[in-house]
Design a protein around this nucleic acid. Structure first.
Lengths: 198, 198
DNA sequence: GTCTATAAGGTGATAGAC
DNA sequence: GTCTATCACCTTATAGAC
């Protein structure tokens, strides 16, 4: 059972290889995009053969899924902590700021997160993207006594898209002022959870 | 020279075949995404062989580029007219509204436009995406005498991302209220070209 | 348990039949 | 001028050597 993908008790070297493969996959997605990833590419970077990769993971899809989950887990941990520390009223802003910060500090993770959502590859439930933010928005409105003048879901969709776009532009043009864009983004969408007739 | 991609004077049947191939490519991108497109897929839909496709277009990349240009041209025509009719002060709002309207009315075109930007495939100059809107924003600020409190570029990046996200959600969930989301989006970003200390 | 050798199928592109 | 037959490559995955 050593070749199980979700093996609970993996040996030391097994876990090391798995981690290495995942790292290489993340790097590859960053450089060539989701579609540009192949087993040979991963294997070459890791200094092993394609089949060796397929020993540690049952299939190619399992490899990129594992890589995605790794990236997602780090993001969720970072954003989750920031949101918890902020409290309900400031949670939405903390969500946006921490997500932008984390992915700008881990540029390699950005493309994978974005393509996992927009791309047709690895088609996931899109509600996983906007639902967390939508909940924070509803909670913030309640905590502030703000009248919910518009759907929290569509607000979350809008804000999420804006975040992605800013991150993508930071990737494509290193000279783009991501900090200023982040501030502007926050200022624009604050009425969603703050107050305004809109 | 009949097999030229950009042949100026193509025969009738040539043009018909080209159009048919382009239509099938657009449909295929819509269904399987940019990465899911193959010559065999296109050929199968068109009822011809791969090589027949490659007679009309020199390469696979040329096929999808032609399909993209076709989609882009229709979008630009629609948005361009709306913007011209609106006048400088209302141009940004007309841009956003007409783009949302056009792509919601031509759902098949949506995924191609979005993946052409975010994806690593067909990597284009990203400034082509935000520059037009950024110019409209600058012009609107001038026409209204509004102080440019923030970068028009980053504003255009934010707005463009929000548009994409709303369109994508409309694709993924037909029950999603795209009209309401469009209104909310406009209301949120209006301060960019209207007035506000932000 | 770890990985090499090999297979089976799909890809984009070409040479040449009609 | 239009398209069929073919090619060389690269993909994922498996069987079995060590």
């Amino acid at each position: 059972m050593a070749s199980m993908d979700s093996g609970k008790a993996a040996t030391f070297t097994q876990q090391a290889r798995r981690d290495q493969i995942i790292d290489m996959t993340i790097a590859l997605v960053d450089e060539k995009g989701y579609a540009g990833v192949s087993l040979s590419g991963i294997a070459e970077r890791a200094g092993i053969t394609k089949a060796a990769v397929l020993y540690h993971f049952s299939t190619k899809a399992a490899v990129v899924e594992a890589a995605y989950q790794h990236v997602l887990q780090l993001l969720v941990a970072h954003v989750g902590k920031a949101v918890d520390d902020a409290g309900p009223a400031q949670a939405p802003e903390a969500y946006v700021r921490s997500m932008l910060r984390h992915l700008r500090e881990n540029r390699q993770h950005t493309r994978m997160m974005i393509e996992a959502m927009s791309g047709h590859e690895g088609r996931r439930d899109t509600s996983a993207r906007w639902r967390p933010l939508a909940e924070l928005i509803r909670a913030a409105r309640a905590a502030r006594g703000v009248d919910p003048h518009a759907s929290a879901r569509s607000a979350a969709v809008i804000i999420g898209g804006a975040i992605d776009s800013v991150l993508l532009e930071c990737l494509n043009d290193p000279d783009f002022d991501g900090d200023a864009a982040a501030d502007q983004l926050i200022n624009l969408v604050r009425p969603v959870w703050s107050a305004e007739s809109a």
